[in-house]
Amino acid sequence: MNMPVYDERPFDKSETAVIHDGQKQLVHDPPEIRGPDGSPAQSVDRGDQVWTWSADEHLTGFAVWREMIWEIYSYRELLGQLVLRDIRIRYKQAIMGFAWALLMPLLIVAAGCLVKIALAHASGGNVDLPRVAGMSIKALGWAFFAGSIGFAANSLVSNMALVTKVYFPRELFPFSAVITQWIDTCVGGGFLLVLLAFFANISISVEWLWAVPVVLLLVAMTTTVALLFSCANVFFRDVKYIVQIVLTFGIFFTPVFYEPELFGPHGSFIMMLNPLSPILEALRLAIIEKHNLLLPVITEGHDGLRFTTWHIGFLIYSAVISLGGFLWAWRYFHKMEFVFAEYV
């Protein structure tokens, strides 16, 4: 059998230096596309720009961001279709249909109640309803985080056929995973609020407005981790086991079933270093405790020591990490997405 012999000589960069001058080749006035007989070709999409595709990324600074955002915007319909696909698949074969979305928060709340009752027994106190309510809000937040990550981490690998055959921004996969989970969470959240209003007498208050920025931070945080894990999973196949471990044990290192103040002054501070903790705590404080997040919360420990368990600084810390992380992770993902097809 005669195997072709490839010339292994590395390609001399200087040979190609003449080709691109380092300028972004956005030609704003494309010549009109015409048929061979001179008539205008049908359906020329004026929205599509002239694009160039070269060895090096020739965009820098804000131009990259403009391109990234523009790409997602122009593929928004595909994003919608992918979300629709994932939702349909999730509920199509399930016997319970949309009740499935309610099961997950219910289970977590049930598990949390169990933990709370056990704790109450151990310390000889009573199970207090606001604590259970606060825990269920945090559990819902955690369920959103964990569900999105678990789903997003495999999103690129399981769509291998698409990644190697069709072009579109690959961000759509982790994004659609997060959005799908978000829709699920909204259904579960609505259900949970009805339950809370009924059993725990939770009513609407002005402090609920805090939930809006806090939820945005939660989404940013989740998307950051989703982008990074889905990308890493393409290059290293054992990442999915790491993801499983992180999701299984992460709940113990995040104050979901307990409050950080249980750990005393130093412990609670260390607990808050997990960037997810302030976000979940803020959700609980704003929705259940109706606390203005700008004001600190000072708790008295068992030994009579008073210490700060909530400070707006915690939330700022989380905001910096999740928003900064989101921008960095998206940029990094965008840079790497062009080699996905070679690795998947």
Binding site: F11, K13, E15, T16, I19, H20, Q25, V27, P30, P31, I33, V44, D45, D48, V50, W51, T52, W53, S54, A55, A161, V163, T164, K165, V166, Y167, F338, V339, A341, E342
Partner: peptide, 23 residues
């Protein structure tokens, strides 16, 4: 051409809406 792979060297320029049917 379909922008699935990035070239190692060189450049290409496309004017208009390009769609690739690879599968």
């Amino acid at each position: 051409l379909a922008r699935i792979l990035r070239p190692t060297t060189g450049r290409l320029m496309v004017r208009g809406r390009l769609r690739a049917l690879i599968e």
